[in-house]
């Protein structure tokens, strides 16, 4: 997976004390009278790997949507790499190194795997609207091939996305999020619906990501979540309920009561 090291952004040098990769302050999002997330504050350091836990409807996806700009928060601020991006459109945030995957695959049914990944590489490059076709040996084409290899989709590279299996679509989601030079990736339930073998592949991909890439992962499968994450945020009814190291959270009686008490969706 060493291919994912290049191109190395300068943030690799970022260490403790540097600006946070992500900083939420008092973020609230209302849907009518319902606060899908309420007064959420959260800081993710550069390179940090964080799991977000919470039962169904806890507001995890809404939290991601507010970070990427897919929806705007009702109040509160979102800072990415030190910059206030609360009102930025999604593409501006993506160009600053943020990526995400979607809980329900959002892909391009009419394009091939290779074209989709190429578009993902191109989206954060200059000349993304070029009228000229890439030439043989275009670095972005090489990069496309590497990414497809990294998520084990090389045999399916010329297939249309609409013809892929569910598991392959999930892998493609991840390839799209790894394209360009990501600094912070949001994974929304990447393991949902995967077979045990596919889960192992996923964990391998996540644990071998270059250290400068931080991520936040929403995951119901505690095993997966606790294996890849260094810190955990627990959401409940749209609020931050607990924050801490994985073993603290796992052993926390309140969390156990919530999680094992049937609230787990």
């Amino acid at each position: 997976m060493s291919v994912l090291d290049s191109p190395a952004p300068s943030s690799r040098l970022a260490s403790v004390g540097a600006t946070a990769a992500l900083e939420l302050r008092g973020v609230t999002r209302m849907f009518g009278a319902l606060a899908a997330i309420a007064d959420v504050s959260l800081t993710v350091r550069p390179g940090e790997r964080r799991a977000v836990l919470g039962s169904n409807g806890a507001g995890k996806t809404t939290l991601f949507n507010c970070i990427t700009g897919d929806i705007l928060p009702t109040s509160g601020t979102v800072r990415l790499f030190g910059e206030d991006v609360t009102r930025f459109p999604p593409y501006e945030r993506i160009r600053r190194g943020l990526r995400r995957t979607y809980q329900i695959s959002l892909l391009f049914p009419g394009l091939s795997v290779a074209d989709s990944v190429y578009l993902a590489c191109r989206g954060v490059s200059r000349w993304r609207y070029s009228l000229l076709r890439p030439r043989t040996g275009d670095p972005l084409l090489m990069r496309t091939a590497e990414l497809i290899e990294a998520v084990h989709l090389t045999p399916a590279r010329d297939r249309l996305v609409s013809e892929l299996s569910y598991g392959q679509q999930r892998q493609l989601e991840i390839a799209l999020a790894l394209a360009g030079a990501p600094r912070l990736i949001l994974f929304d339930e990447p393991a949902a619906g995967l077979s045990p073998a596919e889960r192992r592949e996923l964990v391998e991909i996540l644990t071998t990501l270059p250290r400068h890439i931080g991520f936040v992962i929403i995951e119901h499968d505690m095993d997966v979540a606790l294996r890849v994450a260094e810190s955990v945020t627990m959401l409940h009814n749209g609020r931050v309920f607990k924050e801490g190291a994985p073993d603290e959270i796992e052993d926390d009686p309140e969390v156990q009561a919530l999680y094992l008490g049937g609230a787990h969706g």
Partner: peptide, 14 residues
Amino acid sequence: GIRDNARRMAALGY
């Protein structure tokens, strides 16, 4: 890509 999924294209930087 935009025809197939405009929201995803925005999430790729377009």
